[in-house]
């Protein structure tokens, strides 16, 4: 029970010195073992809930149509890459991959630069209307995309650029601003002012202070912003779905849904395309899981 009552027995080191110990120490160990097993058991169950569907889709990506009926959750008969090759070609995944890389990197870089500059202005200067301005940026988080995309659709149509990749890039660049501003303003505000003042006495301009001092000191926050915005832009379906009609401009999620629409029952191909589109983000996640988890939760912790 409480830690006061704990005898040396519970440490497991001195039990042999105590005459009456072996029996109760054995029981103690047993109950500790049981709780250990229960602990692993519960967490393994949770992990199975996460992993089983992914594993089954991975199996499915190698199967032929009859195999889905013959062995719904079994291993595929062969591990050759027929489905992958065909899906890669038919779903235009190569182009889609390039489009996803272009739109996501443009969106991430542009929104981080824009929001980084703005966050410095908002966090390090006092001026009337500062809080209102900050609220204006961060308030963007509660604007539903469904609302804002409709007038934008009309605007892009009038401008004659609807259907290609450009509107998506522009929207990513701006829609990334609210979260990035939230995270970076919070971080910049916490940095000590001494360095900045010293630099200013040395004659550094504000832009130099921003670039030489604030940016290097804020690497963790910037990484968080890049991951946070990068993941949603890479995974976004809705915006691309509405704005892109040209097959050569489709991003991965849009291309896969289009592919699914035309190859309704060619399950193996669809699952192969799902696996291929998820591999980059899963590899990045497994390599940098700590940064991903810190990054994806950073926006919320300060809010």
């Amino acid at each position: 029970m409480s830690s006061v009552e704990r005898s040396p027995l519970s440490t497991g080191k001195t039990w042999s010195n105590v005459p009456s110990a072996p029996h109760s120490a054995w029981r103690r160990r047993l109950s500790r073992l049981a709780s250990e097993v229960a602990w692993h058991g519960a967490l393994i169950l949770a992990c199975a809930f996460v992993l089983l569907p992914i594993i089954i889709v991975f199996f499915g990506s190698f199967k032929t149509i009859p195999e889905f009926f013959a062995a719904p959750y079994g291993l595929p008969k062969q591990w050759d890459l027929t489905n992958y090759r065909q899906a890669w070609a038919d779903a235009n995944l190569q182009t889609a991959l390039v489009n996803s890389v272009i739109s996501t990197s443009f969106g991430v870089i542009a929104s981080t630069v824009l929001a980084g500059l703005a966050a410095y202005g908002l966090a390090r200067f006092d001026f009337a209307g500062r809080n209102a301005l900050r609220l204006l940026f961060i308030g963007g988080l509660v604007v539903p995309v469904q609302l804002i995309i409709l007038p934008l659709f009309v605007i892009f149509r009038q401008a004659g650029i609807l259907g290609g990749l450009l509107p998506l890039c522009l929207i990513f660049a701006v829609f990334g601003i609210p979260l990035a501003t939230l995270v970076l303003t919070g971080f910049f505000a916490l940095l000590p002012r001494d360095l900045e003042q010293a630099a200013r006495i040395d004659g550094a301009s504000h832009l130099e202070i921003f670039w030489r001092i604030m940016v290097p000191l804020s690497r963790p926050a910037i990484a968080a912003v890049v991951i946070l915005n990068g993941v949603w832009m890479w995974n976004d379906f809705f915006l691309g779905f509405i704005l892109i009609s040209d097959p050569d401009a489709m991003t991965l999620p849009v291309a896969i849904m289009a592919f699914r629409g035309t190859y309704l029952t060619k399950w193996g191909l669809i699952f192969a395309s799902v696996i291929m589109s998820s591999v980059p983000v899963i590899i990045a996640y497994l390599m940098l899981s700590r940064q991903f988890i810190a990054g994806l939760t950073a926006g919320s912790v300060k809010g």
Binding site: V50, I54, S289
Partner: peptide, 29 residues
């Protein structure tokens, strides 16, 4: 455990939806 449990957060909704169709579908589910 934590890494595995967090994994679906980084997977796209399109992939997630299709993954679960394979689980739930009346024909190939």
């Amino acid at each position: 455990y934590r890494t595995i449990i967090f994994l679906p957060v980084v997977i796209s909704a399109v992939a997630t939806g299709i993954i679960w169709v394979l689980m739930l579908d009346p024909q190939i589910g």
